[in-house]
Each structure stands twice: as structure tokens, then as C-alpha cells.
Simulated scan of single mutants.
Amino acid sequence: MRAFTDLLMLADGRFPAGGHAHSGGLEAAVAHGRVRDLDGLRAFLRGRLRTAGLVGAAFAAAACARPEAMEALEEDLDARTPSPALRLAARRQGRSLCRAALVVWPGEHVTRAAKARVSQPIALGVAAHAAGLSPEEAALLAAYHAVSGPASAAVRLLGLDPYRVHAVLAELAGECDEVAREAATHARGPVEDLPAASAPLLDVSAEDHAAWEVRLFAS
């Protein structure tokens, strides 16, 4: 039962991992008129889940299965993240997650991850391993974070009804499971075979967003 509680903690948006400060690219999408309503949000979340979400879930699962390989995983994740702004945002989130994990689940791998300043998916996988979770559970956490963060930001950015926003998340539950299963199948394979699904518009928008003088979210 302890592992299940730890799973809930890592999935909880109130866990002090810094996710509340990031919109996952939604702020830029809203500013440029690509997301205007609930239907637009649904399409954005689905696209993000199948691209950045899949990659993040696979790397989280791999880091959970092989935390000793976190540096190699970090290098390959960098290669799949062409935007410097996204790499910086991921490392900031990873640092926040490691700070929390050092207190809640201290251990050798978490300490190494904090010193190495790994990205959020790697930090999530290492924290999941320290909490006694499986690679499959780490992948599911990452897939859920890929959509729940932007969904939460949508309430502030668009003034959407939070009940309807969470109904959209519930609609995507099956797809989150599918993405997590696909990601977990790669967890114990060669690092170079991990997914490399791309979302060029997210990369371009991240660079644009990073140059704004005024913004609600860090990414």
C-alpha cells in the first residue's frame, strides 16, 4: 500500500515539484490563437500526449528501470529536445522535483540526479524508483503530467470551467494508458531505441515564449 500512496503523491499537482509554474506550451498556443476553447484544448492535449508526452514517459520509465544510466538517458533526451528553452524548462522542473525527492525518498540515485541536474522525465523516473514504483507506473505518471499541467494552466489562461477541463482529462484517460504502455515497452531496451516523436511547433513556440517580457508561466 505504501507504493500506491507514493504513486498518488507523485501524481498530485500539490507535490512541490514546480509543475504549477509551467503550462507545457499552452500559454504560447493561447497567445497565438491556436487554442481558444475547450475543443482546442482537447486537441492540444492529445497532440502533446502523443509527442512530448510519449518521449517523456519513455525516458521516465527507462530512468526508473535503470537509474544508474541517468546521464546517458539525459544525453539522449537532450538530442530529442532541439529547443534550448524547453531543455532549460525541463531541467528547472527536474531540479525542483529532485529537491522534493531528496526529502521524501532520499537515496543514492536521487542524490546523483540532483547533482547532475537532470531533466524532469529523468528526475521523475529516478524518484519513482526511489519510491518503489515500477517503470510502467513511472510512464503513466509522465503521461498524466504531460496533459494535466497544461489542462490546469488552461483554467487561468482561458477562464475555462475547471469541471469541464477535468472532464477532458477523463476523456483522455484511455489514451494516457496507451501511451504509458507503449513507453514502458522501451524501458529496458537500448537508449537509442527510445521514442523520438517530435512536435516542432512546441519547440518553435517555446523559443518565442522564452523571449516574452511578461508571461504567466515559465514555459
Rank of each mutant, 00 (worst) to 15 (best):
A138N: 09
G47M: 04
V165N: 10
S83E: 07
D76F: 15
A143K: 00
A130C: 09
A100V: 06
D39E: 13
P106A: 04
M70T: 06
A183G: 00
D12Q: 04
L157Y: 01
L8H: 03
R36S: 13
A28K: 01
R2Y: 01
E192S: 14
D161I: 06
A146M: 04
A60K: 05
A196W: 01
V103K: 14
P162N: 11
A28D: 12
A139N: 08
A61R: 01
R188V: 10
G25R: 08
A113N: 06
P200F: 14
H209S: 05
R42A: 12
A101L: 09
R48T: 11
G53V: 03
C176K: 13
A60H: 07
T185E: 14
A142C: 02
T81Y: 06
R117A: 12
A128H: 05
L49V: 08
A60S: 13
S152R: 11
R95A: 15
H145Q: 11
A63H: 07
A11P: 01
A28T: 05
R91I: 12
A183L: 01
T51K: 08
L10R: 06
E27L: 09
A63M: 03
V191A: 11
S152F: 06
E137P: 00
E68G: 14
H145L: 09
S96E: 15
S219G: 14
A210C: 08
V147G: 04
R99K: 12
S134N: 00
P84Y: 11
